[in-house]
Design a protein around this nucleic acid. Structure first.
Lengths: 195, 195
DNA sequence: GTAATTTTGGAACAAAGATTCCAAATACAC
DNA sequence: GTGTATTTGGAATCTTTGTTCCAAAATTAC
């Protein structure tokens, strides 16, 4: 009986992500969203509740897709150390292909809203902990294989690596230059070398 | 003949900075600014032109004050390596004393607005280049004194260090925990050690 | 084809936004 | 004290914002 939805929710979330990344949460109007997604106000409100609901769904959708991309990158090699490097390389690739300098939604809105939007702060923290854990596991594996220096603990290196990745993202947004970004990664990852 | 200004422009810029840091540029209303600064709409518009003008002045004022603070920190020691460490330590101190997690205005608005506000992007880039230069000079000096490893060039290390500092700031905003922040700094600066 | 149910487009609304404007208040110079 | 130039407070304005609402359109099941 029911008329089925005339749009793909994933596509809408991706387009919303583009807008929120570019203009920020408060800089994006409902009108922008209506125009970019092509669907009407009623449909948006009916499906996502309100602007904030759409935003949160879009944020989580982005988080998941990013995590998926990362796993794909990592699957290309068996070496834990190379997996780590591939995450950094992939990030550089993303920065350089981002012609409008929209940046990373998670980082952008975390900076814009963390102080006033506890839900966003929670998503951002949770994502950070995930990433630290992933890096930490890779380091642990790499250390036991002898690929990675044992000078520091996996936990400490996990946190350090994600902090470095964020630094890279922000630096790349300010100055998307491939050579300097690669050099920063080279230095940041030199800590892993086993002499 | 003229009636003199009834307020201190610096104070107003600092209070505006607080607001913009906490709520972001688009999240801060003119009403917020009127209430927080205590002065009237007319005075604000007369002095700063408009909201964006006040914002840019506030941003540059913050940038200068931060640079001043940093120089003060550095003046406490003669060792270039210790100067670098003091900048990181000072940043941790700032993060931890920032109870509302307002973060750093420069980083926040760079993430919120870079894509749509070229003036902000320019300030952010210029600040980054300054910082990289400062770090680079300190590294160069430290290398010639034998305090810092010569494995990488001052320029490369300058860029790496500022990228790390940003990573620290963002990580600290997500999770203001002194122990993990200190550990991240320890790892980030280990690259400077001369074995 | 018809009925039932849901989506959809767009008008309508109320709240909040930035900005303008002017009369009143103020402080300096003489 | 008087005059002048400037600041100041707050009302007023006009735009944009998020949200609601309802009639029309669309799709499925029978």
């Amino acid at each position: 009986m029911p008329k089925t939805k005339q749009f793909d929710e994933n596509e809408v979330l991706m387009k919303a992500k583009e807008l929120f990344s570019e203009k920020g949460y408060n800089g994006t109007s409902m009108d922008d969203l209506v125009q970019a997604t092509g669907l009407s106000r009623s449909s948006i409100y009916d499906t996502f509740g309100d602007k904030h609901g759409l935003f949160l769904k879009s944020l989580n959708h982005y988080r998941n897709s990013q995590q998926g991309d990362m796993e794909k990158q990592c699957a290309k090699t068996d070496s834990p150390k190379k997996k780590i490097r591939s995450i950094f390389d992939y990030t550089i690739k993303n920065i350089l292909s981002d012609k409008d300098r929209k940046g990373c939604l998670l980082i952008n809105v975390s900076m814009e809203l963390s102080a006033v939007d506890k839900e966003v702060a929670a998503v951002s923290l949770s994502n950070m902990e995930d990433m630290e854990q992933i890096f930490g596991s890779l380091v642990k594996e790499g250390q036991s294989k002898g690929e990675i220096s044992k000078k520091f603990t996996p936990k400490a290196l996990g946190r350090y690596l994600y902090s470095s990745l964020i630094g890279l993202r922000v630096t790349g947004m300010n100055r998307p230059d491939i050579d300097t970004l690669r050099e920063i990664v080279k230095l940041a990852l030199s800590i892993l070398d086993v002499e």
